[in-house]
């Protein structure tokens, strides 16, 4: 009987040990010999300063996992292959991960993928559900490892990140309350503190989708303030261009459907980008599948602006800093194209 080949994507979670154990055990049940491919897919931000630490961590995790497999194999015929994926491309959303696993599986004749239910590469939140959907889409068979895990909530000791969240939520809601009320009236200060306290205790753990950083998060807020005038200026320019086209009797519109692959992270940055694109008249986000934005453009000048990626650069500036803003435009890096109506 030929060796069963399983692919196990690893990430540093509490359940990764059990996932490896399940992969080895279930693989040996169906076949006499097992070829166990342990892979780590590095997320897109591996280029950033903290990326070095991440890729070192990846090597370490692979070594640990190799030992686990040998331990679980217990003398059976198990071959181990390890690989680090995504070093030469940007992995953003679940779609990219599904595709890179698919490509790896095709290259190595993988029969099955064993998925860690807590699988979360990089710093992003768990992405099991979207990843499962994308794996279905690319036609990859997978198995979710049955694991026992500790409940993630109800911890009594307030951790470092937990405090940061509470702190940030408290001051954001307190500030908003005072904007609505009168910041110099003792009653508003008192009720505001009470309300902000309740809000932060009950909602802090769902408020932020990414871990807060004591330096970077306030910086992002500051940079966002600089982004607003830029966005307003873009809106005014686009409004005048669109108005001129609409009011001209010949109405020279040229509607096209375009696809732009945005290089920003899913979640808040992508939302901000898609919303900004829609907010400027002349471009309208019709679909957003992960980083693939399907944008309807009304006039050629709006399309050119979109392909030049001014808003994308600005969003990257807000979320990742000035160095990251200097990336090639979607046009230059071949991430923008005009597509037909059947793409919808």
């Amino acid at each position: 009987m030929a060796a069963e080949r399983v692919l196990v994507p690893l990430s540093d979670t509490v359940t990764v040990r059990q996932t490896v154990a399940y992969a080895v055990q279930s693989g040996l049940e169906t076949a006499d010999s097992l070829e166990c491919h342990l892979v780590i897919a590095l997320p897109y931000d591996v280029d950033l300063p903290e990326g070095k630490r991440m890729s070192d961590g990846a090597e370490e995790l692979l070594e640990r996992a190799e030992n686990w497999v040998e331990e679980d194999a217990d003398g059976a015929d198990v071959t181990i292959e390890t690989a680090v994926l995504g070093t030469d491309e940007y992995l953003f959303g679940p779609r990219d991960y599904a595709e890179i696993f698919r490509a790896y599986a095709d290259d190595h004749g993988i029969d099955r993928l064993v998925l860690d239910p807590e699988y979360s590469p990089g710093v992003t939140a768990s992405m099991l559900q979207p990843l499962e959907r994308e794996l279905d889409r690319v036609g990859m068979s997978y198995d979710e490892a049955p694991v026992e895990r500790a409940a993630r909530h109800g911890r009594l000791v307030l951790s470092h990140t937990g405090f940061d969240r509470l702190f940030a939520t408290f001051w954001i809601s307190f500030g908003f309350y005072l904007v609505l009320g009168d910041p110099f009236y003792w009653f508003d200060l008192l009720t505001g503190a009470a309300v902000a306290g309740i809000v932060s205790v009950s909602l802090a753990h769902v408020t932020f989708s990414m871990p807060l950083d004591r330096v970077q998060s306030p910086l992002r807020a500051v940079r966002f303030v600089f982004y607003i005038p830029y966005l307003l200026w873009e809106i005014v320019k686009a409004n005048i261009a669109v108005s001129a086209v609409i009011l001209r009797p010949s109405m020279p519109i040229e509607p096209t459907l375009t696809r732009v692959n945005a290089r920003v992270r899913s979640g808040l940055p992508l939302l901000a980008l898609a919303n900004s694109i829609t907010l400027t008249p002349g471009t309208l986000t019709v679909r957003a599948n992960d980083q693939q934005l399907l944008v309807h453009t009304l006039i050629p000048s709006a399309r050119e602006d979109l392909f030049d990626g001014g808003l994308e650069k600005a969003i990257r500036f807000v979320f990742y800093g000035r160095e990251s803003a200097a990336i090639p435009s979607p046009n230059e890096r071949d991430d923008a194209e005009i597509v037909g109506g059947d793409e919808l």
């Binding site: 609409i246 109405m251 519109i253 907010l279 008249p281 002349g282 309208l284 009304l298």
Partner: peptide, 15 residues
């Protein structure tokens, strides 16, 4: 009123 379809109208509605 003038633009042809729902997508084009959505642009100008946001104005």
């Amino acid at each position: 009123l003038r633009l042809p379809d729902i997508y084009a109208r959505a642009h100008t509605a946001s104005q």
